Amino acid sequence: MVVLDRLPSGLAVAALACVLSATAAGSIAYGVGFRYAQALGKSELETLKTNHAEQALAADSANRVQLLQQITRATEAEALLFDAFDRFTEEKRQLQERIPHVTTQYIAAPGAVAKPIPRCVFTAGWLRDYNTALGVPTSGQGTAATSSEKAAWPATGTDTELLESGVTPADILAHAQDYGVWARSNLVQLNALLDLQEKD
C-alpha cells in the first residue's frame, strides 16, 4: 500500500481496478478451467468405463463359447465311453454263454467226435504266481489274510504249493473276460482323456 499512497489518487484507483480486474479474470479463468478439466475427466472416465464394460462383455462371450465347446466335447466323449462300455458288456455276455461249450468238450482231430475235456489241474502255487503276475497282493502283503487266503498262498518251494487250487479252465476264461473288459475300459477312458486334452 505504500506504493499506492505515492501514486496520484486517479492513478491509484486505476491500479487498484487493474489489480482487482486481473484477480477477477484469474478467478474466472480458474473456475472455467476447473470446470473444463472436471468435465473432460468425467468424459474420459465414462469412455474408460464403457471400454471396460465392452471388454468384459467380449471376454464373457468368449468364455461362454469355450465353455459350450468343452461341454459339447465332454458330452461326446461320454457318449463314446458309454457306447464302448455297452459294447464290452455285450461281448462279455456272449463270451460267457460260450464258456461251458469251450471248457467241457474238445475234438482231438478235425472230423473226430467231441469228447469231454480231460481234467485240468491248476496248483495252489500256479494260482499264487498267476495272481502275483497280475499284481494281486499275497497274504504277506497288505491286510491280514484270512485262513482261506493262507491256504491259497502256500510258501514257495513247499509241498503245499503243489496241491490242487480248485481253479478250472472256465474260471480262468471268466477271469480273462473280466480283466479284458477292465483293461479295454481303462484304455478307452485314457484315449478319450487324451483326445479331450488335444482338443483343448
Rank of each mutant, 00 (worst) to 15 (best):
L57S: 03
A53E: 08
Y130M: 09
G111W: 14
G26P: 03
R93M: 13
R6C: 04
N186G: 10
Q105I: 05
V2L: 12
D83W: 00
R64L: 15
V2N: 15
L163D: 11
D60E: 14
Q69R: 02
D171P: 06
T47R: 04
R35Y: 08
D195C: 00
L80I: 06
V32P: 01
Y36E: 08
L80H: 07
S185Y: 00
L20Y: 08
V3D: 10
L11Q: 08
G180L: 06
E97G: 06
K150V: 03
G166K: 08
S139L: 00
Q141N: 11
H101I: 05
A84S: 13
S21M: 11
K150A: 05
I117R: 15
A192Y: 07
P116L: 14
A29N: 06
T104R: 05
A37V: 01
V32E: 01
G111S: 12
R119L: 13
Q38W: 13
Y30H: 08
L16K: 14
E161K: 00
R93D: 08
L20M: 13
E76S: 12
N186C: 04
G157T: 14
R73F: 02
E46L: 04
L173C: 01
A152S: 07
V121M: 14
A59H: 03
G125D: 10
D200V: 13
D178N: 11
A58G: 03
V19Q: 09
I99A: 00
C120A: 10
Y106G: 05
D60Y: 14
L68F: 12
F88Y: 15
S61C: 12
Y179W: 08
P8S: 03
A79F: 10
A152K: 03
L81S: 02
A79H: 00
A53Q: 08
P110I: 11
S43Y: 09
H175T: 04
G26S: 13
Q70F: 09
H101K: 10
G10A: 08
